[in-house]
Design a protein around this nucleic acid. Sequence first.
RNA 1: GCCCCCAUCGUCUAGUGGCCUAGGACACCGCCCUUUCAAGGCGGCGGCGGGGAUUCGAAUUCCCCUGGGGGCACCA
Length: 480
Amino acid sequence: MTVRTRFAPSPTGHLHVGGARTALFSWLFARSMGGAFILRIEDTDTARSTEAAVEQIISSMAWLGLDWDEGPGKGGACGPYRQMERAGLYESAAQRLFEEGRAYRCYCSPKALEDARRAAREEGRQFLYPGTCREGAGKQASGDYVVRLRTPDSGSTVVRDLVRGDVEFDDALSDDFIIVRSNGVPTYNFAAAVDDDAMAVSHVIRGDDHLPNTPKQIHVIQALGGTVPAYAHLPLILGPDQSPLSKRHGSVSVEEFRSKGYIREAMINYLALLGWSLDGETTLFTLEELVSSFTLERVGKNAAVFDNDKLLWMNGSHIRSLPGNELAQRVEEYLAGGPLEGLPGSDGLPGVADLVPLVHEKMKTLEDFITLTGFFFLPFAYEEKALSKLLDDENAPGVLAAAREVIAAIEPYDAGGLESSLRERADKMDIKLGRFLQPVRIAVSGRTVTPGMFETLMALGREKSLERIDAAAGMLSSKG
RNA sequence: GCCCCCAUCGUCUAGUGGCCUAGGACACCGCCCUUUCAAGGCGGCGGCGGGGAUUCGAAUUCCCCUGGGGGCACCA
């Protein structure tokens, strides 16, 4: 059997990390089985769906590297891949079911049903559509109607789930649900099932919240005479307080993480481990490694809390394993379009490629590049903490004067020479290197944390270094 | 209320009856390295929700309870 999976988001907002995780698992499964991955846009909720959201989702998926074999912008044998463009299919499917007596028209007013529902709730019992229009109601030829699927009154429907095992639902507890609204638009459970069948989806991989819907979809597919696919319901992703992850927990969209300087490798790796594990030992994976080791059998059943700390650590780890030139490229891309674009490297300033090697191992996000190296290309300013440390250091004036002398005199001006001469000078003054370098660091960068001092002095250049040291020394002496 | 799912360190998890005095990772705390900060190395803290049952033996099997979550729409 050919494996065909699909990711079917409804375009009502950005791609959420939960959705991304679902997409990733579907993608991984398809890729690992040599199957096809389909992207299908479920935009039947016309009130909430937007074109901008479609574009957002597509761009987030592309950024993550989750490419699809069939879908928007790609085409495919089972298209179109947007449900609103497939209206005819649902219509004819519903018509067929109606003609075969597997579905019927229901003329009950929404108001009457709502009242009955409320009454049932107040009495504490579950409301089930009573089947008022089930038999012979088609004769009633006037008024709005919806189409309902005739479902079994007894027996049970078993969902064969690859992560949960078999889950049994009592058919007596479900009713004849609506498959076509009075406005002619199909409902989710109908459209999704028709499409899964029409697109020959072999494995439906989706969030846990869809498990209770599954028997309905199975009923649709069976009524259609189709083949019921295998299902795999993934556990939910929770926020730190164990409630379902939502905006109030902070960043939840892939786009937000991207703009905060997270890289796709880390995002993918982290998401993969949210609900899946290889052996409990291996934590760092490349996309290729995930493809070769992913299996549905290793997907866990319990909901997982999204841990920003671990993601951050993992991002740093993946940044560190990027080749230097690749990281520089990512930083350039990250800066592109922002206020800093083109600033590093302009006007004799050190460029991104010059600076990246100095901070490569310190960066946890691409955004860190800016905080770590900003003093090279942004207008000089002291950090408050750094300034007070400089002011409090009684060695500062002497050290600055000595360092100035060394830096001004050294020939050639290189990191090795700088290091040995500065070390020698610190030695002579009987000051430990760390204490000696700190005032210089602050004078030159305005910060207490910088890349290695000698590399920093090199990247900044002799002239600028001296300039800043002189400014600091001047400030110190005028202050008394 | 009814139906369904889930339950190992704070978090992500390994674990499928003896290899578990429960392993790894993040976080946290020490120490080492060191030019600041990271990174790295070493060590530490910390967990099987509760009760029954099966068994020579349960984290692992079964039942109940508790807790958390999902669903019960002309939303998806």
